[in-house]
Design a protein around this nucleic acid. Structure first.
Lengths: 85, 85
DNA sequence: TCGAATACTAAGGATTCCTTAGTATGCTAA
DNA sequence: TTAGCATACTAAGGAATCCTTAGTATTCGA
């Protein structure tokens, strides 16, 4: 998918979608939170995934929506064993 | 902790920390990604936690840094059982 | 190698933000 | 009570950033 097309599907004005996307990708400008959310929606990536620097946790975030109810419970049970401060 | 103090600890200019924080909390303006990261650092909250709308996953994100190596492996093993698309 | 699609950039008007200055509100000690 | 202070909050404008326009550069397939 082209930069332009991605922007269009995220709801950008088609006439400026290309430069906008390019400026984001090149780091010239930064999308605001709403724009990031729309791009993530198009790309099928959880927004939280972008803001996670722990690779293990990133894998959990990326796949959690596909984890079934029982396995979720198992994961939460493990997580909840951490000592409360 | 006061709004002002939170801003100062996040590195804001002390003379404008109070209005800035208030504008963020009232929704008048929105902090950029770098500012969000600094505020999260001060508050001890993972940035990804803010961008997660699934309560179960939010719990995982909030506590993952305190989960030990073995339990991490167990969680990843569960997550990796999801069907690859 | 021509044409079209895509990638990329400069520049400026449009938008948003940070800062200043100040008011309003809550709280504590005299 | 109320004087004094910390905190919360707001308006307005200069400062910074972005979106848009216009255009050039690059890639790629016919």
């Amino acid at each position: 998918m082209s930069q332009k097309q991605l922007g269009i599907e995220a709801g950008f004005d088609p006439s400026s979608a290309s430069p906008r996307m390019n400026q984001y990708e090149k780091g010239k400008h930064h999308p605001d939170a709403t724009t990031v959310a729309k791009l993530c929606e198009v790309l099928g990536v959880p927004v939280a995934y972008l803001y996670c620097d722990d690779d293990d946790l990133a894998r959990v975030i990326a796949n959690f929506s596909k984890v079934g109810e029982k396995d979720r419970k198992r994961i939460l049970a493990i997580v909840d064993t951490v000592k409360q401060s």
